[in-house]
């Protein structure tokens, strides 16, 4: 009896220790920026973590991973990067769950700002969308305009098309191309087993398209950073609709307006624009993004 009592006490003790230690550590995590900021007063009393919801393409490429430590070093702010699709990023912004969004869907961004959720849409980089597919191009769409390529895919059913299907910016672009090509999106969705909706981020969708030996619409940045693991090659890479502009929008209800403004200044600064313009060059032989902060075409027209 004595033994089992000791055992029970031991178990309870160990668990409580583990639990309380971890709770203490958790609160450490959230409190340390507070104590840090009271010491340094970097952002006029603003403290805590600046939450940024970003489109997956800026994160899957590793861009945010490169920029985050730079920003945190220059400013005494913890940056929390949540990689989701543009659709969810906008919803997080509307709910006030994040302070800043970095997205790529012009029409929806303008709507977001007009509804009063965002201060201003500030483009900072662009690249192009590509239609990638298997080398042998079973549907024969190589070199077509994106709209003609989609028409051919729809008509011939000779190839598989993997759609993001997650209401992201890329998915929005795909819908725009279908609309320009003269199709109702509902008809495309029910067109047959050649059209697959992945419901995942850009990277996962590329991996899926590769497995299925199908086509997909991707931003050039994510494609280049995944290229090494994929057999897919660019099939369609020219067309006005393929322009892909990334913008940053600060939420109107953010509790950290100064820190958020610092992030905007950071992304549009010459130094960071330069880093962005060279990002990926070493590893992939070409830049993944073209910087375009300020009144530069094609971002600001």
């Amino acid at each position: 009896m004595k033994n089992s009592l000791i055992t029970n006490l031991l178990i309870i003790g160990v668990m409580l220790l583990l639990g309380s230690a971890s709770i203490a550590c958790d609160s450490d995590d959230t409190e340390s920026p507070v104590t840090a900021s009271t010491e340094v007063e970097p952002t006029n009393g603003e403290s805590g973590r600046l939450k940024v919801a970003t489109t997956t393409s800026l994160d899957n490429t590793g861009l945010w991973e490169t920029l985050e430590p730079l920003f945190e070093e220059q400013n005494d702010v913890d940056l929390d990067i949540v990689a989701v699709g543009t659709g969810i990023a906008l919803e997080y912004g509307r709910n006030g769950d994040v302070d800043v969004i970095t997205v790529h869907s012009k029409a929806r961004e303008i709507e977001y700002v007009d509804e009063g959720y965002g201060l201003e849409r500030i483009p900072f980089a662009y690249n192009y969308f590509l239609i990638v597919g298997p080398e042998d191009d079973p549907a024969g769409i190589r070199g077509m305009s994106p709209e003609d390529a989609f028409k051919t895919l729809f008509g011939s059913e000779a190839g598989t098309f993997v759609s993001r299907g997650d209401d992201s910016g890329t998915h929005g672009k795909e819908k725009t191309i279908w609309a320009n090509a003269g199709y109702e999106y509902e008809d495309v969705q029910s067109a047959g087993s050649w059209y697959l909706e992945a419901g995942s981020g850009m990277g996962a969708t590329l991996v899926m398209a590769d497995e299925k030996q199908g086509y997909t619409l991707t931003d050039a940045g994510t494609y280049l950073s995944y290229k090494g693991d994929l057999e897919l090659v660019p099939i369609v890479d020219e067309g006005d609709t393929l322009l892909n502009v990334y913008s940053i929008i600060v939420g109107t209800n953010t509790e950290m307006p100064q820190a958020a403004q610092k992030l905007v200044d950071f992304l549009t600064s010459d130094e960071i624009q330069h880093i962005m313009g060279n990002f990926g060059f070493e590893e992939y032989g070409m830049a993944l993004f073209t910087p375009c902060a300020g009144p530069i075409a094609p971002c600001n027209n």
């Binding site: 899957n60 990689a83 989701v84 996962a204 991996v207």
Partner: peptide, 22 residues
Amino acid sequence: GGNIREFTRTLTTAIALETSKG
């Protein structure tokens, strides 16, 4: 949690992320 690096990333969300990255 949002799978935030150095804040809310756990083993399971890291597995999901790495899988999606191929």
